[in-house]
């Protein structure tokens, strides 16, 4: 991928009150690419899932740090990295299966499925005991725009 035209980074505590903050902040930044309402909703939802995973799974009994970096590219692509230094995922392949959850009865087990289907590409890198990085890439077609 080419050099990003813009980039931002945030860091916050793994408290559930920050789920709304994270998705709203990321979507506000991505708004620079003039996305449609549907594209913004897709991004908000994918980010919400990634951050919720950090809170519920990476730091189940502690409060840790969550790092989000967003890159915007001039071809309309956006790359979002959500990183934690929590407990990691033993079996990433299993975790990505729809409806699979270790999160108890009121978790749907759809987090990764939602991220995957609401973006164009999802990469998950995880090391047990070290943490997890989820990378989401989405192409923003956006509204029809004039020359930039």
């Amino acid at each position: 991928m080419k050099k990003p035209i813009n980039e931002f980074k945030i860091q916050f505590q793994s408290k559930s009150a920050n789920e709304g903050f994270a998705r709203t902040t990321v979507s506000a930044f991505v708004s620079q690419l003039d996305p449609t309402v549907e594209e913004i909703n897709d991004i908000k939802t994918a980010v919400s899932e990634a951050v919720t995973n950090c809170i519920v799974h990476a730091y189940p009994d502690t409060v840790g740090k969550i790092y989000i970096t967003v890159f915007l590219y001039d071809d309309g692509n956006v790359k979002i990295k959500v990183r934690d230094t929590g407990k990691g995922i033993e079996d990433v392949k299993k975790a990505r299966e729809p409806l699979y959850t270790t999160g108890g009865e009121d978790r749907s087990g759809l987090g990764f499925s939602v991220m995957e289907s609401f973006t164009d590409k999802m990469y998950v890198r995880s090391l047990p005991g070290k943490g997890t990085t989820v990378t989401l890439i989405k192409s923003i077609e956006g509204k029809p725009r004039d020359n930039r």
Binding site: E105, S108, L110
Partner: peptide
């Protein structure tokens, strides 16, 4: 706004 937590909410109540 709703993410998969809304789905979990519905599935749990359904049960």
């Amino acid at each position: 706004f709703m993410d998969s937590s809304g789905v979990g909410l519905v599935m749990g109540r359904f049960k």
